[in-house]
Write a protein that binds this DNA or RNA. Sequence first.
DNA 1: GAAAAGTTTGCAACATTATAACATTTCCGA
DNA 2: TCGGAAATGTTATAATGTTGCAAACTTTTC
Lengths: 169, 169
Amino acid sequence: MSARALPYRPHNHDTCVTQALTDARTICQDRNVRLTPTRERVLELIWQSHKPLGAYDVLAQLSDDGHNAAPPTVYRALDFLQQNGLVHRIASLNAFIGCTHTGEHHTGMFLICQGCGNVLELTAPSVSGAIKVAAEAESFALDDVTLEIAGLCPRCQSEQDETGAPGNE
Amino acid sequence: MSARALPYRPHNHDTCVTQALTDARTICQDRNVRLTPTRERVLELIWQSHKPLGAYDVLAQLSDDGHNAAPPTVYRALDFLQQNGLVHRIASLNAFIGCTHTGEHHTGMFLICQGCGNVLELTAPSVSGAIKVAAEAESFALDDVTLEIAGLCPRCQSEQDETGAPGNE
DNA sequence: GAAAAGTTTGCAACATTATAACATTTCCGA
DNA sequence: TCGGAAATGTTATAATGTTGCAAACTTTTC
């Protein structure tokens, strides 16, 4: 899948969303699963924000569309998207974000900025490796890794230096 | 603080709880904060299980005590215990567990068994180090790390081999 | 040792996040 | 075009977490 810009850097986000949707269609076709209109719209809504979106935020936006949606609609779409590696759930935020490493087999590692709320997904083989070694040392059979790092992104660090308070994009 | 047995291994858990409470009293005295009866009881309830306990589980047990408790009582006690490093919240489970590394400055790493539900807290400097390096590479100022690993503990792996299904202690 | 100030708890209501259960519709292959 | 599987709609409810204010208790200060 195509590379994408860091959320910290200015970029044409429309393109970024369009690309994500195109990738998603390809992936679903390859996997022979159905990216239905609801699922696609949910994915789009999530991608339109670099900040994680709560299930009820998605629900509200679907309602704005005129879609007569209830919670299960959203949760089912999110489950589907997660299972197909198109979005990640951030456990520490109860929120969802578009996966920027679709296709690759990866252990998501998320840098969550407490200032602006943006989240950057990383793949750090050295971290995954160290985790694997540590788990093996305990004879623990690793299945799923949740790694979420809260802190300040570069931009919010400098804003804080200037104003004494983190920014809010 | 004193070393404690792995949850996977048989041990005298009463002693283990007593020790945790003794340690907690010392820590609170040193830090000049108040380990009130409610807070102490909540800590005890959490320690009595090696499995993470939900806030409402704690609440139910307080009610069994005859304590006339409401959710804020429990959440406030849990906040206090967390702030003083006596318990950890496991975000992926919405549950709490006693900290086995009180006193040490550490990045908790949790091995969560999907079979028996036990959780082992580890400190792995190689993992913390790799995370720190990865965050620095993005100029990200790290504040708090959530690292939770789901899988199977050694015991549940062997049970699964024998029976085809994970055990439930 | 009494009043003031700060901390902790009680309590009621409410907000947010997530799921269950079952009916209905849509899709797709035979 | 029919029949089964997948997806969605709908209603209700469960599970988790918070706000706001008043009362009780502790510590400090005079």
